[in-house]
C-alpha cells in the first residue's frame, strides 16, 4: 500500500496526456509519468518519492508499438522488456533486456521506465546508445507537439527531457539490427541481480562499439574507450589498463561489489567481449 494519496490518470491519446499534464501543472500539482509503475510503487511505498498525480502512459497506442516500419524498428516506450525479448527483432536489445530483473517483473517493467529509472543501471539503454538511435518525444509545457531527436541529445548519464515531456517511441535503423553483437552481464552471486558490470557491444564497419552499466554510477558509451579497444597495436594487457584509465567516473564501491572487485570483473568482461568479436573486425 502506498502511504500517500494521489490522483491517477490514464489518457488514451498523446494530446490527452499533454493536456492532463499542463492542467495539473497549472493547479501546482506535482506529476509523475507512470509506465510499468514498478519503480514508482517501490519508491512510493517507502516514501522515497511522492506525487500529487500520476499519468499512466500505457493507454496511448503509440507507446505500445513494437514493429518494423519501413527501414526502422519502432519500440514504444511502454513496451515491456519481455515483449522486446520475445520479439527478437533487435537481438542485442532482446538479450540485454532479458538480463534485467526477473521474468515476472519484466512482464511489467517497460523500456521507457528502464531508461527513465532513478537507479543507476538503466541497462536497456546500452544497445540503443550503440545503434545511434533516435527517440520520439512528446509533451512539454510549450505545447509544441512531438519532436524526433537523437537519443544522445536527451540521454547523458540519464534521461534528460524537458519539463512535462515523455518518451513516446525509440527508432532504430534497420542496418543496426543484425550486426555482430555480444552482451555480457556479471552479477555478484545470483543470476537475477543488479550488474557488477553489464556490457553491450556490436561491430559496425569493423569497429567495436561498447556501452557499459554497473561499473560507474551511470550507463555510458565513450568514444575514447572504443578507440583503445579498436587499436590493434596494443598488447592486450596494456589495452585493458588503458580502458580502465579512460573510465568516465570512479568505479562503484558498494554492497554489490567493492571497486577492486568490480575493476577485476570489468577487465575480464572487456577482454571476453573483444575476444568474442574479433572475428567480425577482419
Amino acid at each position: 500500500m502506498i502511504p500517500f494519496d494521489f490522483e491517477y490518470y490514464k489518457p488514451a491519446t498523446v494530446a490527452e496526456a499533454c493536456e492532463t499534464y499542463r492542467t495539473l501543472q497549472e493547479q501546482k500539482k506535482s506529476v509523475v509519468y507512470y509506465s510499468g509503475g514498478t519503480e514508482f510503487i517501490t519508491l512510493a511505498r517507502v516514501n522515497q518519492i511522492s506525487a500529487d498525480a500520476v499519468i499512466d502512459l500505457k493507454g496511448i497506442p503509440e507507446v505500445q508499438v513494437l514493429e518494423m516500419q519501413g527501414d526502422q524498428f519502432i519500440v514504444g516506450s511502454a513496451v515491456t522488456l519481455n515483449q522486446i525479448a520475445e520479439s527478437r527483432l533487435f537481438p542485442l536489445l532482446a538479450q540485454t533486456v532479458r538480463g534485467v530483473a526477473d521474468h515476472n517483473s519484466r512482464n511489467k517493467i517497460t523500456i521507457g521506465g528502464n531508461l527513465g529509472s532513478r537507479l543507476s543501471y538503466r541497462e536497456g539503454v546500452l544497445p540503443l546508445l550503440l545503434a545511434d538511435c533516435k527517440v520520439r518525444v512528446a509533451g512539454g509545457m510549450k505545447g509544441e507537439g512531438e519532436r524526433v531527436v537523437s537519443l544522445s541529445d536527451v540521454f547523458d548519464k540519464q534521461l534528460n527531457l524537458e519539463q512535462g515531456e515523455f518518451l513516446l517511441q525509440i527508432l532504430v535503423d534497420k542496418e543496426y539490427l543484425d550486426l555482430p553483437y555480444v552482451h555480457l552481464k556479471k552479477t555478484k552471486q545470483s543470476k537475477v541481480d543488479y550488474p557488477l558490470v553489464s556490457v553491450a557491444a556490436l561491430v559496425k564497419d569493423k569497429e567495436i562499439r561498447m556501452a557499459f552499466s554497473g561499473i560507474c554510477e551511470y550507463p555510458f558509451r565513450l568514444g575514447e574507450i572504443e578507440e583503445v579497444v579498436n587499436n590493434t597495436t596494443f598488447a592486450r594487457k596494456e589495452q585493458l589498463k588503458q580502458v580502465v584509465g579512460k573510465l568516465p567516473a570512479a568505479i562503484l564501491d558498494d554492497l554489490h561489489g567493492s571497486a577492486g572487485y568490480r575493476e577485476f570483473v570489468f577487465r575480464n568482461v572487456v577482454q571476453e567481449t573483444i575476444d568474442a568479436l574479433e572475428w567480425a573486425q577482419k
Binding site: 491517477y8 490514464k10 514498478t38 510503487i41 515476472n104 517483473s105
Partner: peptide
Amino acid sequence: NGDCGACTVLADGKPIHSCLSLAIE
C-alpha cells in the same frame, strides 16, 4: 519489492508481481 514472487497472479495470462501493480491499473 518484486523480489520473492509470493504475490504472483496472472494478468491476461502473464505472471506478474501483484505487489508492483496498482489495483486501478
